Simulated assay, not measured.
Amino acid sequence: MGLFTGTASYYRQYRAPIPESVVAVLDAAAGQARPRRLLDLGTGTGLVLQALLGRVDDIIGVDADADMLAEAEKALRPALDADTRLQLVHARAEEFTAPPGWQAELVTICRAFHWLDQQTVLARLDAQVAPQGAVAIFADSSPWSSPAPWKAAVRAVVQDFLGEQRRAGSGVWHLHDQPFSDILRESVFSDVEEVTVPVRRTRNTESIIGYLHSTSFAAPHLFGERLDDFDNAIRHRLADLADTDTFVDDNQFRIVIGRRPPHTPGQSA
């Protein structure tokens, strides 16, 4: 099974949209050239693409999970205006090749870079990014690593059911300890800018359960016949923490933007 097998519907419904404050950073990184072409790797259900609709003219979203792309298609196609082109491509980021002559002003990789063969992806992007284009790698923090009481309680329930080690689909999570900014500096996109954007969300119990089932560490298939038991255990644990069923999620997006240094010409496609 893949990392996100069975999670697509949960991902579309329960993952929070990309905040406008993050969209503003991405919009600025794309520059002013027209047409504005956007390449989103690990596009999932299209949350980044949806956030940038109206700001780009030509969009390619790439994902290795066909179910995720089906959710993206349902959400995005009806929202397109007549002048915006959208292609959704079922492929691994490490194997995707843009159409001849097509180069992106902005590449986005949201909540996905840690899953990729990073050096391979960045090397392939050299031919697929316009000379003045940018690569933006960004994510908010996982509840797995947060000390917030309700997130720690949720994590404990997951560990009760699946073991102490964080799962990653059918395997276990392996921490990537090299900062993404350093990885970009070792690539052709070595002119690096870092931006941190705080975000506050409010969740309830059912949205927390839905979010958990959108993740690789609590995907529904991991629980087998104990899925309902898990969901009820989360409900009971959270009920002990809040009478109003309201849980504040103080989080932040860390955005790393890489460009070619000014003296380095871009390759042609």
Rank of each mutant, 00 (worst) to 15 (best):
Q159S: 13
V158H: 01
W173H: 14
H176I: 05
H174C: 15
L184P: 06
W144D: 00
V172W: 07
V192Q: 07
V157S: 02
S146D: 06
T202E: 12
L162A: 13
S190M: 04
G171R: 10
G171Q: 09
Y211C: 02
P143L: 04
S190N: 10
T205H: 08
G163A: 12
P149K: 00
L212I: 00
T196Q: 13
H176M: 02
V158R: 04
A152G: 09
I183M: 11
H174I: 07
N204M: 02
R200A: 08
W173R: 12
A136I: 04
Q178C: 12
S170K: 13
P143V: 04
H174Q: 13
V199N: 10
R166S: 11
W173P: 00
G210L: 03
P179H: 05
Q178N: 06
D140W: 10
S187V: 13
A152Q: 14
R201Q: 05
I209V: 04
G171N: 05
R201S: 05
R203W: 04
K151P: 11
F189G: 10
V154L: 08
R155T: 10
R166K: 15
D140E: 14
S141N: 07
S142F: 02
A152V: 05
E193V: 13
S142K: 10
G163N: 09
I209Q: 03
A152Y: 03
S146K: 11
S142Q: 09
P149C: 03
V197R: 15
L212H: 00
A168V: 07
W150C: 09
A139P: 03
V157T: 08
T196I: 15
T202Y: 07
S170D: 13
I209L: 02
L175S: 14
F138W: 12
D160Q: 15
F180D: 14
V154F: 00
A156K: 15
E186V: 05
W150F: 09
